[in-house]
Protein backbone atom coordinates (compact mmCIF):
# COMPACT_ATOMS: atom_id res chain seq x y z
CA UNK A 1 0.00 0.00 0.00
CA UNK A 2 2.85 2.39 0.87
CA UNK A 3 6.32 1.82 -0.48
CA UNK A 4 9.11 4.14 0.61
CA UNK A 5 12.37 3.55 -1.22
CA UNK A 6 15.67 5.18 -0.27
CA UNK A 7 13.96 8.37 0.89
CA UNK A 8 16.39 11.17 1.64
CA UNK A 9 15.58 14.69 2.70
CA UNK A 10 18.03 17.28 4.00
CA UNK A 11 17.51 20.70 5.55
CA UNK A 12 20.73 22.50 4.73
CA UNK A 13 23.68 20.31 5.73
CA UNK A 14 21.55 18.18 8.10
CA UNK A 15 19.96 15.04 6.72
CA UNK A 16 16.53 14.74 8.34
CA UNK A 17 15.86 11.43 6.60
CA UNK A 18 18.65 9.32 5.18
CA UNK A 19 18.06 6.48 2.70
CA UNK A 20 14.89 5.28 4.44
CA UNK A 21 13.15 2.24 2.98
CA UNK A 22 9.84 0.88 4.30
CA UNK A 23 7.04 -1.23 2.84
CA UNK A 24 3.58 -1.12 4.36
CA UNK A 25 1.22 -3.81 3.15
CA UNK A 26 -2.58 -3.71 2.91
CA UNK A 27 -4.18 -4.70 6.21
CA UNK A 28 -1.22 -3.49 8.30
CA UNK A 29 -1.11 -0.97 11.11
CA UNK A 30 2.45 0.27 10.95
CA UNK A 31 3.89 2.25 13.87
CA UNK A 32 6.72 4.70 13.36
CA UNK A 33 8.70 5.60 16.44
CA UNK A 34 11.75 7.67 17.20
CA UNK A 35 13.05 10.47 19.35
CA UNK A 36 12.17 14.13 18.76
CA UNK A 37 13.79 15.31 15.54
CA UNK A 38 14.48 11.74 14.36
CA UNK A 39 12.79 12.40 10.99
CA UNK A 40 9.30 10.97 11.58
CA UNK A 41 7.35 14.08 10.58
CA UNK A 42 9.58 14.67 7.56
CA UNK A 43 8.94 11.11 6.38
CA UNK A 44 5.20 11.42 6.99
CA UNK A 45 5.01 14.75 5.17
CA UNK A 46 6.89 13.32 2.20
CA UNK A 47 4.49 10.36 2.10
CA UNK A 48 1.53 12.77 2.16
CA UNK A 49 2.88 14.78 -0.77
CA UNK A 50 3.50 17.91 1.29
CA UNK A 51 7.27 17.69 1.16
CA UNK A 52 9.41 16.95 -1.87
CA UNK A 53 12.15 14.40 -1.17
CA UNK A 54 15.72 15.16 -2.28
CA UNK A 55 16.01 11.61 -3.54
CA UNK A 56 14.21 8.30 -3.33
CA UNK A 57 10.71 7.28 -4.33
CA UNK A 58 7.34 6.91 -2.66
CA UNK A 59 4.51 4.80 -4.08
CA UNK A 60 0.93 4.73 -2.82
CA UNK A 61 -0.98 1.66 -3.99
CA UNK A 62 1.56 1.35 -6.77
CA UNK A 63 1.31 4.97 -7.92
CA UNK A 64 4.31 7.30 -7.68
CA UNK A 65 3.55 10.34 -5.53
CA UNK A 66 6.17 12.25 -7.48
CA UNK A 67 4.60 11.56 -10.85
CA UNK A 68 0.90 11.45 -9.96
CA UNK A 69 0.47 13.38 -6.71
CA UNK A 70 -3.25 14.06 -7.15
CA UNK A 71 -4.07 10.38 -7.79
CA UNK A 72 -2.09 9.40 -4.70
CA UNK A 73 -3.73 12.03 -2.53
CA UNK A 74 -7.15 10.71 -3.49
CA UNK A 75 -6.23 7.46 -1.76
CA UNK A 76 -4.54 9.03 1.27
CA UNK A 77 -5.83 10.61 4.44
CA UNK A 78 -3.29 12.72 6.29
CA UNK A 79 -3.70 13.92 9.85
CA UNK A 80 -0.90 16.19 11.12
CA UNK A 81 0.28 16.38 14.73
CA UNK A 82 -1.14 19.87 15.16
CA UNK A 83 -4.29 20.25 13.09
CA UNK A 84 -4.42 23.89 12.02
CA UNK A 85 -7.73 23.99 10.19
CA UNK A 86 -9.60 26.83 8.48
CA UNK A 87 -10.70 28.76 11.53
CA UNK A 88 -13.02 31.01 9.52
CA UNK A 89 -15.26 28.02 8.75
CA UNK A 90 -17.68 26.13 10.94
CA UNK A 91 -17.14 22.43 11.45
CA UNK A 92 -19.84 21.47 8.97
CA UNK A 93 -18.59 23.97 6.38
CA UNK A 94 -15.14 22.44 6.70
CA UNK A 95 -16.42 18.88 6.23
CA UNK A 96 -18.49 20.03 3.28
CA UNK A 97 -15.41 21.70 1.79
CA UNK A 98 -13.30 18.55 2.16
CA UNK A 99 -16.13 16.47 0.65
CA UNK A 100 -16.27 18.81 -2.35
CA UNK A 101 -12.53 18.51 -2.85
CA UNK A 102 -12.80 14.71 -2.87
CA UNK A 103 -15.94 14.83 -5.03
CA UNK A 104 -18.15 12.92 -2.58
CA UNK A 105 -21.86 12.95 -3.44
CA UNK A 106 -24.41 14.50 -1.07
CA UNK A 107 -25.90 11.28 0.24
CA UNK A 108 -22.59 9.60 0.98
CA UNK A 109 -21.14 12.64 2.74
CA UNK A 110 -24.34 13.04 4.77
CA UNK A 111 -24.14 9.41 5.94
CA UNK A 112 -20.44 9.57 6.75
CA UNK A 113 -20.64 12.90 8.56
CA UNK A 114 -23.54 11.61 10.63
CA UNK A 115 -21.66 8.41 11.40
CA UNK A 116 -18.24 9.78 12.28
CA UNK A 117 -19.48 12.94 13.98
CA UNK A 118 -21.67 10.68 16.10
CA UNK A 119 -18.79 8.36 16.93
CA UNK A 120 -16.56 11.24 17.98
CA UNK A 121 -19.42 13.10 19.72
CA UNK A 122 -18.89 16.22 17.64
CA UNK A 123 -22.33 16.39 16.01
CA UNK A 124 -23.65 19.25 18.13
CA UNK A 125 -20.51 21.31 17.66
CA UNK A 126 -20.38 21.21 13.88
CA UNK A 127 -22.36 24.44 13.52
CA UNK A 128 -19.79 26.31 15.63
CA UNK A 129 -16.81 28.11 14.10
CA UNK A 130 -13.61 26.06 14.22
CA UNK A 131 -11.94 29.03 15.93
CA UNK A 132 -13.99 28.17 19.01
CA UNK A 133 -12.86 24.51 19.12
CA UNK A 134 -10.46 23.08 21.67
CA UNK A 135 -7.34 21.23 20.48
CA UNK A 136 -9.08 17.89 20.98
CA UNK A 137 -12.15 18.99 19.02
CA UNK A 138 -9.96 20.17 16.16
CA UNK A 139 -8.18 16.82 16.24
CA UNK A 140 -11.53 15.01 16.07
CA UNK A 141 -12.66 17.20 13.17
CA UNK A 142 -9.38 16.56 11.34
CA UNK A 143 -9.90 12.81 11.83
CA UNK A 144 -13.51 12.95 10.58
CA UNK A 145 -12.43 14.99 7.55
CA UNK A 146 -9.68 12.45 6.86
CA UNK A 147 -12.06 9.51 6.98
CA UNK A 148 -14.86 11.09 4.99
CA UNK A 149 -13.55 9.92 1.60
CA UNK A 150 -13.00 6.32 2.72
CA UNK A 151 -9.19 6.39 2.31
CA UNK A 152 -7.11 3.35 1.52
CA UNK A 153 -4.08 4.63 3.37
CA UNK A 154 -4.22 6.72 6.55
CA UNK A 155 -1.06 8.57 7.50
CA UNK A 156 -1.09 10.13 10.95
CA UNK A 157 1.42 12.12 12.95
CA UNK A 158 0.85 11.61 16.68
CA UNK A 159 -2.90 11.05 16.23
CA UNK A 160 -3.75 10.42 19.89
CA UNK A 161 -2.41 13.74 21.24
CA UNK A 162 -5.31 15.80 22.58
CA UNK A 163 -7.94 13.08 22.21
CA UNK A 164 -10.00 12.03 25.22
CA UNK A 165 -9.91 8.31 26.20
CA UNK A 166 -13.19 7.54 24.47
CA UNK A 167 -12.15 9.23 21.21
CA UNK A 168 -8.78 7.43 21.35
CA UNK A 169 -10.60 4.14 21.71
CA UNK A 170 -12.92 4.99 18.82
CA UNK A 171 -9.97 5.93 16.63
CA UNK A 172 -8.20 2.65 17.40
CA UNK A 173 -11.32 0.72 16.42
CA UNK A 174 -11.64 2.68 13.18
CA UNK A 175 -7.97 2.03 12.42
CA UNK A 176 -8.54 -1.71 12.79
CA UNK A 177 -11.70 -1.53 10.65
CA UNK A 178 -9.82 0.23 7.85
CA UNK A 179 -7.14 -2.47 7.89
CA UNK A 180 -9.72 -5.24 7.97
CA UNK A 181 -11.25 -3.70 4.86
CA UNK A 182 -7.89 -3.92 3.06
CA UNK A 183 -6.54 -0.46 3.88
CA UNK A 184 -3.36 0.41 5.77
CA UNK A 185 -2.35 2.73 8.59
CA UNK A 186 1.03 4.40 8.98
CA UNK A 187 1.36 6.53 12.08
CA UNK A 188 3.99 8.02 14.34
CA UNK A 189 3.75 7.98 18.09
CA UNK A 190 5.76 8.51 21.24
CA UNK A 191 3.39 6.38 23.27
CA UNK A 192 5.12 3.03 23.04
CA UNK A 193 2.39 1.15 24.91
CA UNK A 194 -0.11 2.20 22.24
CA UNK A 195 2.24 1.14 19.47
CA UNK A 196 2.87 -2.19 21.17
CA UNK A 197 -0.82 -3.01 21.55
CA UNK A 198 -2.05 -1.60 18.26
CA UNK A 199 0.59 -2.16 15.60
CA UNK A 200 1.23 -5.18 13.44
CA UNK A 201 4.61 -3.84 12.47
CA UNK A 202 6.87 -1.12 13.76
CA UNK A 203 9.85 0.87 12.51
CA UNK A 204 12.34 2.70 14.71
CA UNK A 205 14.12 5.71 13.23
CA UNK A 206 17.08 7.55 14.69
CA UNK A 207 18.82 10.61 13.25
CA UNK A 208 17.03 10.03 9.96
CA UNK A 209 18.13 6.41 9.58
CA UNK A 210 16.04 3.32 10.02
CA UNK A 211 17.60 1.29 12.82
CA UNK A 212 15.07 -1.52 13.15
CA UNK A 213 11.81 -2.61 11.54
CA UNK A 214 9.59 -5.65 11.27
CA UNK A 215 6.68 -7.33 13.03
CA UNK A 216 6.16 -6.42 16.64
CA UNK A 217 7.54 -9.78 17.75
CA UNK A 218 10.60 -9.44 15.55
CA UNK A 219 11.42 -6.01 16.86
CA UNK A 220 10.86 -6.51 20.58
CA UNK A 221 11.69 -10.20 20.99
CA UNK A 222 11.13 -11.10 24.63
CA UNK A 223 11.42 -7.55 25.91
CA UNK A 224 8.92 -4.73 25.90
CA UNK A 225 8.99 -2.23 23.04
CA UNK A 226 10.06 0.47 25.49
CA UNK A 227 13.10 -1.55 26.60
CA UNK A 228 14.11 -2.26 23.02
CA UNK A 229 13.64 1.38 22.03
CA UNK A 230 15.72 2.69 24.93
CA UNK A 231 18.40 0.08 24.31
CA UNK A 232 18.63 1.05 20.65
CA UNK A 233 18.77 4.72 21.54
CA UNK A 234 21.69 4.08 23.91
CA UNK A 235 23.47 1.73 21.51
CA UNK A 236 23.66 4.30 18.80
CA UNK A 237 24.74 7.26 20.92
Amino acid sequence: MLKIENLTKAYGPKKAVDELTLHILPGEIYGFIGHNGAGKTTTIKACSGILKPDSGHIFVDGISIEEQPIECKKKIAYIPDNPDLYEFMTGIQFLNFISDIFGIDSETRKTRIEEYAGLFELKNDLTQPISSYSHGMKQKLAIISALIHDPKLVIMDEPFVGLDPKASHTLKEIMRDICNAGGAIFFSTHVLEVAEKLCDKVAIIKNGRLIRSGTMDEVRGDDSLEEVFLELEDENV
Binding site: G91, I92, Q93, L95, N96, S99, D100, I104, D105, S106, R109, K110, I113, K123, N124, D125, L126, T127, Q128, P129, S131, S132, Y133
Partner: peptide, 17 residues
Protein backbone atom coordinates in the same frame (compact mmCIF):
# COMPACT_ATOMS: atom_id res chain seq x y z
CA UNK B 1 -17.78 34.05 22.85
CA UNK B 2 -16.71 30.64 21.65
CA UNK B 3 -18.90 28.89 24.20
CA UNK B 4 -22.27 29.43 22.60
CA UNK B 5 -25.34 27.29 22.36
CA UNK B 6 -24.83 23.97 20.63
CA UNK B 7 -27.10 22.84 17.84
CA UNK B 8 -27.29 19.99 15.40
CA UNK B 9 -26.50 21.01 11.83
CA UNK B 10 -29.30 21.09 9.30
CA UNK B 11 -29.37 18.84 6.26
CA UNK B 12 -29.26 21.94 4.09
CA UNK B 13 -25.73 22.60 5.36
CA UNK B 14 -24.54 19.57 3.42
CA UNK B 15 -24.60 20.33 -0.29
CA UNK B 16 -22.29 18.96 -2.92
CA UNK B 17 -20.38 21.24 -5.25
Amino acid sequence: NAARSKANFSEKAITAG
